[in-house]
Write a protein that binds this DNA or RNA. Structure first.
Lengths: 340, 340
DNA sequence: TTGTAAGCGTTATCAC
DNA sequence: GTGATAACGCTTACAA
């Protein structure tokens, strides 16, 4: 006589589909259906099942589900930092789209490191994600190979490339736009400070350089770039350093708002009037920039929307909607405030 | 004649253990062993296996692994916000401990909502996490029940409770300490502004009230609490509002540094001298507070260390180290700066 | 509408 | 040190 081994409860007291099925008096697959496609189960049975599920406190086992269906309902998102408002906002947009659709979001924080990125991707790929959201386009060959071999759609965020699915804006144009605006305001000796030096920062710097070179105002000593993490404190230090090596500056374009805030605080401390003696402009329009005194001119970037649309684009690629617009330029907005 | 179905490759071109086994000419379990417990496999075989694994690009399937072993190597972390430096730092500490140990970290952002917390926990529990890290102790009955029923260890972060595993500090004492410090500086009409109103904020407020009441200086109109999300802008607005209803204030204790920064910016704009006319103190010692002009007195909280030690404590509970110190008070530090 | 059978890729258990 | 076998809990494909 064979005893049905399945009737026993597993270790952690977890309730299984079979236990629910047994109690209801139907087969496991029917319970499975009632949970995933309720419309395919008769109303009475469905109600009975719901009761028992509730009563037993049944929770589907994701691992089993993923293994059986070869779908994990998981999307991997790799961002370079969580300490940066920009990516936190982007993540919020991603969540707001993917969670309602039943997707888990696996966040990977690469800390601006290619190695870390490769390591994280390797680890996360073991979870067979349904899709991947990457920040930018600059990745190691290994990462590119992993992405290609993953067999799942990838959407790149923050930048634009006609060849690949992406949602972002032109970082180069941002750098150009702010520099052109400063020139239009009459500033001529426009300095630049940059940190992090990720691909996007470099593109903004390129925009700055292009415009100044076109106007014949570019001077290498009016610019400082360091690889350190961007921060308010660093902004203060870089402003000090740059003003020492180029005291004649009349404006300062900072590659990120936290640098701009730091530069502003440095000026306050030194008694340098902003914008009268030195105009200050930032980038990203972080929340605090609207409240400093003076408030800081910046470029507002649509990061929440980038998160949202990246996720939406990914969903479309997932269901194979070939018509989906695969490259989405969300633009940016120059926000003029008191500091310029 | 039976054809071994296993020899075929699965959909996404994923390499399986069996394929590696076939190529090496051993059984699957041996490959599995070579990967997880190399010392239990002969050196020569192990080397051969490593080669083939590399050659085929084999990656273990986490879902199968979790299903077979009933261990997911996953830890769930629930934090109320990612927009708050505090929790980002905490997460960094958690990662730094858990990643090297091979654990995945599933981040849940509850957005300060009990409902959201319950929903996230429900979803994440389906992944059979090995452990859970929660923020604070105030959870709905449903969440408590889920935690209890999860069968896995739970560590609470940020606060202290002798009854449960936790790593944090006394929020009440923080509120007391700052208020006592302000009194010691000679301030008597000490206002308080609070946002968010989560359990920890309320405890700090309680500390503020206790001390002022003990000194007979407590005045209800010197305090404003709103449930809105904490932000620099809100700090400016609340400072304005409070100064209107209590113009005689000589000091202002803000329940969070972003509020304090906002209050400071408001004063700058209004020409209120800080600290001469109004002293300002914050909480959490966010990075920017050291750089504003004047710099802001605050309380530095050991959030990175809390993340680290919470993760470490969880690991100890996981291996059943009964001797682990289950309640860890990491304290806090008053950081005196120019604003007081 | 419901059920049967087979298998997803791995690991636990117990032999050899 | 290595292997055969049976799970793990669920879903797919096909039947009834």
């Amino acid at each position: 006589m064979k005893i049905p081994a399945r009737a026993k409860r597993s270790a952690a007291g977890k309730v299984t589909l079979n236990e629910v099925a047994e109690k209801v008096g139907v087969s496991a697959i029917t319970i499975s259906r009632a949970l995933r496609t309720p419309e395919k189960v008769s109303a009475t049975l469905r109600q009975r099942i719901e009761e028992v599920v509730e009563e037993l406190g049944y929770r589907p086992n994701q691992a089993a589900r993923a293994l059986a269906s070869a779908r994990s309902n998981t999307v991997v998102v790799l961002v370079p930092s969580l300490a940066n408002e920009v990516f936190v906002d982007t993540l919020a947009g991603i969540y707001d789209v993917l969670h309602p659709q039943g997707y888990q979001v696996l966040i990977g924080n690469t800390r601006y490191s290619s190695e870390e990125e490769a390591k994280l991707l390797r680890a996360y790929l073991a979870h067979n994600p349904d899709g991947i959201l990457m920040t930018g386009f600059e990745h190691t060959a290994e990462v590119e190979a992993q992405l290609a071999g993953s067999g799942c759609p990838v959407v790149h965020m923050m930048e634009l490339d006609p060849q690949r699915p992406c949602v972002g804006f032109s970082q180069l144009d941002c750098g150009r736009a702010m520099t052109e605006y400063l020139l239009a305001q009459g500033y001529r000796r426009i300095g630049f400070i940059a940190a992090q030096l990720d691909a996007r920062t470099l593109k903004r710097r390129e925009g700055y350089r292009q415009v100044l070179q076109e106007q014949g105002c570019y001077r290498a000593e009016q610019e400082i770039s360091v690889a350190d993490a961007s921060s308010v404190g660093l902004g203060a230090r870089l402003a000090q350093q740059l003003l020492q090596q180029a005291p004649q500056l009349d404006a300062l374009f900072c590659c990120n708002d936290d640098l701009a805030q730091g530069a502003l605080f440095f000026c306050q401390r030194q008694g340098i009037a902003v914008p009268e003696q030195l105009a200050i402009a930032g980038f990203n329009d972080l929340a605090a920039s609207a409240w400093t005194v003076p408030s800081i001119t910046s470029i507002a970037t649509p990061r929440y929307e980038i998160g949202k649309q990246s996720a939406q684009l990914l969903l479309q690629l997932l269901v194979g909607q070939g018509e989906a617009q695969r490259v989405r330029d969300l633009g940016f907005e120059l926000v003029v405030r008191e500091s310029t």
